[in-house]
Design a protein around this nucleic acid. Sequence first.
DNA 1: GCGTATTCCATTTTT
DNA 2: TGGAATACGC
Length: 755
Amino acid sequence: MNEDYLKGLNPVQYNAVTKIDGPVLVIAGPGSGKTRVLTYRIAHLVNSGVAPWEILALTFTNKAAKEMKERIGKVAGDKANQIWAGTFHAIFARILRAEATKIGFPSDFSIYDPSDVKSCIAEIVKGQGFDPKAYGVSDIYHRISMAKNCLISPRDYAADAERLLDDKQANMPYVYKIYDLYIKKLQRSGAMDFDDLLFQMHRLLKENPDNVVEKYRKKFKYLLVDEFQDTNSLQYGIIQLLVKYPGSPQNICVVGDDAQSIYAFRGATIQNILDFEKDYPNLQVFKLEQNYRSTNYIVQAANDVISHNKKQIRKKIYTEKGEGEQIKVIRAVSDNEEARMVASMIAELKLRHRMKNEDFAILYRVNAQSRVFEESLKGHRIAYRIYGGLSFYERKEIKDLIGYLRVIVNPKDEEALKRIVNYPTRGIGDASLSKLSLAAEVNAIPLWEVLKKAVSFDNSISTRAAKSIQEFVMLIETFQRWLQTEDAYEMAKKAAKLSGILDDLAKDKTPEGQGRIENVQELLDGIKSFVEEDTIGELQTEVQDKTLSSYLQNIALVTDSDKDEDDNDRVKLMSVHAAKGLEFKAVFITGMEENLFPSLMALKSKDSRAAIDEERRLFYVAITRAEQHLVLTYASSRYRFGKMQYNNSSRFLEEISSDCMEIKSNNETAKVGGMKLPSQIKMPLKTTSSQAPIQIKVSPVHLIIPGAKVLHERFGEGKVMNVEGAPDNKIASIFFGGDIGEKRIMLKFAKLQVL
DNA sequence: GCGTATTCCATTTTT
DNA sequence: TGGAATACGC
């Protein structure tokens, strides 16, 4: 057995990898080799004789799953493909596909994306005659989603005094009613939303038809969960059902970092980590605290910031990467200036440190901030790529074609049906459609069934409309017959042509119109590669069949960000959330302002303490993305929603001890030592000596002794007060002039010249 | 029934 | 600011 992979591990990592039996909790600080531990652990399981298909590894993102599989492949070879590794959603969708009929869903169930969900809820609100102003669709969706994620059924909801009161205060007392109707409507439509992939999975295991739970308990002998801090109660519940039962070996390993929990807003709770210790008494805990990513100033800043959060598991990350460069804080007068300064700093760093575009990331709190950076980067001719925003699959023409495919596979899919029934326009207007929707609602049957016999449900339908509906039904039924013989690609090609989508798009001769045709073509190409190479985007899938149904199930859970296009040597722009799990040589965290980071939403939420703590963890995540260079920027004024807004600098800036930072404004630099960082807009500018690095002739370490006068490349002249530490890792306390004061400096990294 | 003009509206993060 | 719902004219 080749166990070379064990050699490069530090002692804690080694234990976390090799203690394979029983429950294990790994607390993994940022950059501590978490993925390494996880993948080596899986490789180690396989090498220890565990069959790969007995291993279930759950992640949050497709990207993480992909990376994990690739890295396992490198250590464990082909067997990696047989491991059940994927996102919670994808894995459970796969299981549900096999078991759905046991809980009253078709195995070809549709997966509703958030926009489907919203339109579905909107229809219910309308049908019930609730005031759409009071009943904001997104708000209702959020409440329903939270309920599901807390394992609250519609019946529980109706009996939950706290929820009812909260709904009442939000001026929407009938959310519980909408929830109930929504669930029923989904069931009628043979559809599940994202939350249902968890909720129904839990239901399946809990209600346990045909003792299905035993099947999966037997199958999955070893369970691993990544990003455990981001799991919600529902996910925890599923895990419990799979692992905690009489006689269970409880071979579960969860890996997470409470300090990086940034998804509480959608139900994640670090309570799961705390509960885990209670629920598994013989738990083994390993803490990975050594950071292999960042230099010391960055690590220290991260520790400083997170120490302001009360509720956390005790740990402190450290690094041996050396002191590194100080963190730069930059104030700009406007968002535009902020963008210009960031772009020119990138240009400068590229020159000075021979860095490439791909070494840089610009991070922001909200995607809307990306725009100004686009312009400034263009101005400097710096290649960039924006992550997030409107995804490929959210484009209208793509959704339209996928709408056809969904209806063909599952005609009960009402959201898809409504989208395409009159696109391209074929004379089935709103009037007819709302009559028929009503009939479907009243009779509690799928809209499709009503369409098939439209006139018998409502004889006020015009003959013209009735004829069009008839033709539409026949079109879909023709497609459905082909389903028996054709693969996904053939089906999609036929659908694009015969539906009239391609002809309709061809009418538009503008460049945008051409682009839409190209997009459809791209989708078709994607389906082709699914059929021929088992891929979805860039993701390798282990699909069972090449049917359209199988394709749709896979595609629903893949987003744009999963296919890494030609991001060769481009500066990456993304939200802090999107940056989680990534690392860059240089990171710019922008918009460090009150009301933006922390966000206004957090500040005015009803538990603002908890919300700000989450923002702080988000900031912690952002800081710890940086390997060598970290720049924090803020703007005194910025455009938001078409209006000029004036904000103070973020409270988070003040939480970083000032000796980690260097403060800059409009190219004039100022040192701040010991005093609080000015948070007002009118920040007093401390203009002192020039900050160009001083040319140093580095003196050997043994010459640096107490009393010596030394010159530091950035702090200037100072006097050595004290030297301590091991001979190969001496730390000197040096007193510098000006307002720098005394600093502790690791001699093996500092550039000092004895005078 | 259809396409365009206008007004309005809400603005976070994502599987 | 810009996307989406509504109003209006054909």
